[in-house]
Design a protein around this nucleic acid. Sequence first.
RNA 1: GAGGGCUUAGCUCAGUUGGUUUAGAGCGCUUGCUUGACAGGCAAGAGGUCGGCAGUUCAAAUCUGCCAGUCCUCACCA
Length: 882
Amino acid sequence: MELAAKYNAAEVEDRWYAYWLDHKFFHSEPNEKEPYTIVIPPPNVTGILHMGHVLNNTLNDVLIRNARMHGKNACWVPGTDHASIATESKVVAKLKAMGISKEDIGREEFLKHAWEWKEEHGGIILQQLRKLGCSCDWDRTRFTMEPALSEAVINTFVHFYRKGWIYKGVRMVNWDPEALTAVSDDEVIHKDTQSHFYHLRYYISDGNGNPTDQFLVIATTRPETIMADAAICVNPNDERHHWLRGKKVLIPLINREIPVIEDDYVEMDFGTGCLKVTPAHDVHDYEIGLRHNLPVLEIIDDHGKLNENAQILVGEDRFVARKKIVKMLEEAGNLVKVEDYTSPVGYSERTNAVIEPKLSAQWFLKMDTLAKVALETVESGRTKFIPERYVNTYRHWMENAHDWCISRQLWWGQRIPAYYLPNGQYVVEATPEAALEAARAICPDIKAEDLRQDEDVLDTWFSSWLWPISVFDPDMPGHPDHKPNKDLSYYYPTSDLVTGPDIIFFWVARMIMAGEEFMGREPFSNVYFTGIVRDKIGRKMSKTLGNSPNPLDLIETYGADAVRIGMLLCSSAGNDIFYDEAQIKQGAAFCNKIWNSYRLVKGFSVDDSVAQTPAAAAAIRWFDAKLSETVAAVEDHYRKFRISDALMAIYKLFWDDYCAWYLEAIKPAFGQPVDRATYDATLGYFEALLKLIHPVMPFITEELWQNMEDRKDGETIMYAAAPAAKPYDPDTLVNFELAEEAVNGVRGIRNQKNIAPKETLDLKIKGGFPADVLSVIEKMGNVKVETVADFGSGQGVGFMVRTHEMFVALNGLVNVAEEIAKLEKDLAYQQKFLAGVRGKLANERFVANAPAAVIENERKKEADSLSKIESLESQLKALKNS
RNA sequence: GAGGGCUUAGCUCAGUUGGUUUAGAGCGCUUGCUUGACAGGCAAGAGGUCGGCAGUUCAAAUCUGCCAGUCCUCACCA
């Protein structure tokens, strides 16, 4: 087959992906081999591929393909997450555009729309992953809301409820009075907002609900909430306010009596040091209320209007009420002063409405035991974090874990299996049938229609924390007494998890908890945290900035291999990635390099009667060792998850060592054939290199590997054994490096003196240089080498390769004054260096304390330096005499 | 405000428990090459007092303290 001068990725990639799929190469079933398992961090079902996914999934694929080639039974389980908030808001937006609100159509109808949306847009991202070359076991694709996994979630809820770890509690949520829903903390944007600080006078009560002459002053930004006050709070250490102990005060305008309490929460030097405590409408006040057993009185309704409890201004919007009440307070003589004040106020990300803290009943899962166990998993090293520093973050969170609020006021998700009886009692059961039975134990004549299921659904993470278990055996999480099925016993615990540090608590920590709870052991051995993909100048990729490229466009332009390598080139673990298209271009250039080196090798004509040249023999000896050295290094990098280092080692082995040195050294003269032994070795190395590169660049390597020989249908590089490191003689490497340095020296001189590479030069080398690489120097440097005892008196330029002296004869081309100046500069440097080394050696304390090896090294430096100085001096002498 | 991370060449980063580091790589940059695989290429070269100050040590990019800059997580102050 004729090979084009340029590699055409687009033409190649779809073909091989289809081939891999046809032969089910990605599919894994339990067998006698060692498993290597990864579960995908499930992307949102309606999401589309962005650069973060590209990075994450490329890393996953590299690990999976590498494991596969190392003889493991590799299984990468793909799937998607139902992402309740994100998906529901998309569906709500779609319906809104059609003039429909979800309340109008009701839960059942809404869910129909949501499933339609999921069928239409769901899984696009999984298709996109195929373009990237991901070798996921598509037969195992899962969705967190598919029936079996939903059942697992419900069973899990029942499991923890029976254990007494799930309870119903009241919590302050972020209420959006426009959208009429609670929103998560992440969806609240705090903005500094201009407002006022109102100083209000509260009179001390005489004990009968009548004001005395005494008063205190509080400062508030929300005067419209005074009717919900439950106490006035001061700091116990604040002597200014000790006289208030045991007193009661009267709320202005409505004259309700409330106590004065003391709590450390109050800052003495902020405001007046007196805080009005409004448990129903402020998070901190709610907590103070809990500590002091204060009553909770709500005066603001779901729409942000004052209700009956307020007694005054009933029905007014909270902001209108604020204006009006200020006036009323002023008229009543309770307003002391008004200050301008800027404070952070929470706004809803979606409606931009000011968030109203609101109490509501939520379901919680106790974290104490789960967190303790999960912390131990990581501290003991059964699960390792890469980079390790994330253990600190993890520990800090686990030691301060709050109970997990698992209910969400949404419809898209697993509905909480709590069923309320008409009398307000409730039962928790996996199915409505079981619930009815349980309810009858309480109320014998109750009917199914009397039971009302909880309206809320479960937090999405309450399903994704089961992912490493439920994808293999959905029955397992709800029934921890059951024996794991064949898949789960084989694939669990999974090997590595690749994810972003932003979900270390949401997801990673909770998977560890669930793993320990249901399987009694960690869900994965290693967690590799990637960084965040940013643009060239460090901004996060975002739709609004428009700085995020579409990965599919990049794949189309440069090829998936180029995109993969481009992302890996700049990604060390845990560091943010500064994405630059130039790196992908570099990846494309690498593809082209591989392609063209193959064209060269394939273009050789082979002649069995031709003898191998000494240079080719030397190059083969060297490359054999070099390959082993690099394979060992690459394996070490992989073991330590230094993926970009592994890639760079391979990149340099291919480009610098194989192409720039090896191929040039064995390349026959123009028009000449190559001998059989050299040709076979060269193709063998090429194949080894393809295998080494394959995990990173699956497509081009398959294309060339298939082209190398007439492969049978069903053969693939995917399952070829990775090259193994063999023992080698380090001297082989050192000797070739000496030759390289000698050639570099000659090339440097050519450059300086403007001598064409074609012009053959004479190179004199003083004795002791390894003889087996001289032929390489001759070929690569285009020189005639002569080993001599003395350079004699000819004109030329000398240089040193480590401790070996070399001399290029150059008649008539040497500028004596220039050479002398250069040599003198070198000499001065060497003398200074020598003085440094000798200073160290003359230091008694150094000689007394340093290890012998270090001292030995300093002596070697001294000797090397001395020999260089000697050489420089003799060259100078020769030049000056010429 | 609390905690954590980072700071090494123009850019992005290595530097593996202080001594073969006389600090490296890739990209970029400069110079020279229509060298018959590749100009998406070849060759050579310049470029860093390892953020600052102080300390520990015979020895510090590496350990300690303080300072500066930067980023992240959490909390956001009535």
